[in-house]
């Protein structure tokens, strides 16, 4: 019985364990490295949020950064100290301007708010498929970006918003990443998740067995928006500052690259892709900063990171289009696997 439960939950357990090892090693490492790992965990929350929709529905979204934005600003509205709000966010309605929520409650409210926005824009979007759906989600991002960039009184416009409580460290980020994975794992194995995966393979055949494709997509879209929003919230409360440009093309590109490189077809793909790209990103950043070999100082031009990630994505798309994990989860060790375990 216990073996059976472990077998069923293995795709999630294995990844949670893998991340635990990374976090434990990270906690022993210098602060700089801890910060890199924390950032990677935050990215992972975003990528898993994106995966929940893209991986299960097969519809690529270019718009999820919009929900990072609504999440991060939504949480900031609730947990920035009141006296800072009076300076930067004069336009906030009274019930927000006077409020100072504990960070966790602010985060939950902001996730709910983002889910609500996803519900509203999702109703027409989930009826689209393929390229039309992707372009539609991108339009949502542009709309949200333009609104938040210009709504000076409640977002401080294109200037940075500062004074957010900083509460995100390695273990908070780890906990959120594991929570996001659990949510995505439970969803993909639910009846709705299964129905959505069927529609990913063949929309017509899924309809023919009674799957309500728009409805399943909408549920996934809302859940995924809430998770992605959590990613945005974590990032804002990791840096303590917030800027609309944080949640635009750059993050859209990097999160999609992570998902595509790992493979959109499995939870393990999202995790491995995030890990691989985070690693490459960090190495290239070191090259940009510069290092010395003997007497010569080598410094590579800025922009190398994005360039490197783009090249990796192209190479993966050509040689391994299903991604590093190719839709598979982490295999079960023989001990728990009835088909490979030996008889005692």
């Amino acid at each position: 019985m216990a073996r059976h439960a472990i077998r069923l939950a293995w795709p999630f357990l294995s990844l949670a364990l893998l991340l635990l090892i990374v976090a434990a090693l990270g906690s022993l490492a210098p602060t700089v490295i801890q910060r890199v790992i924390t950032e990677a965990f935050i990215r992972l929350v975003m990528v898993i949020g994106l995966y929940l929709f893209v991986g299960n529905s097969g519809v690529l979204s270019f718009g999820h950064a919009a929900f990072m934005m609504t999440g991060a600003y939504g949480a900031a509205w609730l947990d920035i100290p009141v006296k800072s709000k009076k300076i930067f966010l004069k336009g906030l309605p009274n019930f927000l301007g006077q409020a100072e929520f504990p960070p966790w409650l602010a985060a939950l409210c902001a996730m709910g708010f983002s889910g609500l926005i996803a519900l509203i824009v999702g109703v027409p979007l989930v009826r689209l498929s393929g390229l039309a759906a992707s372009i539609g989600t991108f339009s949502v991002l542009v709309i949200v970006f333009v609104v938040y960039s210009n709504w000076n009184e409640v977002t401080n416009g294109t200037s940075s918003l500062i004074g957010l409580p900083i509460y995100v460290d390695l273990w908070v980020a780890y906990g959120c990443a594991v929570g996001a994975m659990l949510a995505a794992f439970l969803f993909q194995n639910s009846r709705l998740g299964l129905a959505l995966r069927a529609s990913r393979e063949d929309e017509v055949a899924a309809k023919a067995i009674g799957v309500n494709v728009p409805f399943s997509r909408l549920v996934a879209f809302v859940l995924s928006a809430a998770l992605v929003a959590l990613g945005g919230i974590l990032q804002a409360h990791f840096l303590g500052a917030l800027n609309v440009l944080q949640f635009y093309i750059g993050i859209t590109f990097i999160t999609i690259a992570m998902l595509v490189v790992g493979g959109t077809g499995s939870l393990a793909g999202a995790v491995i892709g995030t890990g691989a790209i985070s690693l490459v990103f960090e190495l290239l950043r070191q090259l940009e900063v510069g290092f010395t070999v003997g007497a010569t100082e080598i410094q590579l031009p800025p922009g190398l990171r994005e360039l490197g990630v783009a090249v990796i994505m192209i190479v993966i798309l050509i040689f391994r289009p299903a991604g590093l994990m190719a839709g598979r989860e982490i295999p079960l060790p023989g001990l728990f696997n009835p088909s490979t375990a030996r008889a005692p």
Partner: peptide
């Protein structure tokens, strides 16, 4: 029109 990427059991559950 079975769902080839899904398992046999998942197809049946669908």
């Amino acid at each position: 029109e079975i769902f080839g990427e899904l398992t046999v059991e998942e197809n049946l559950r669908l």
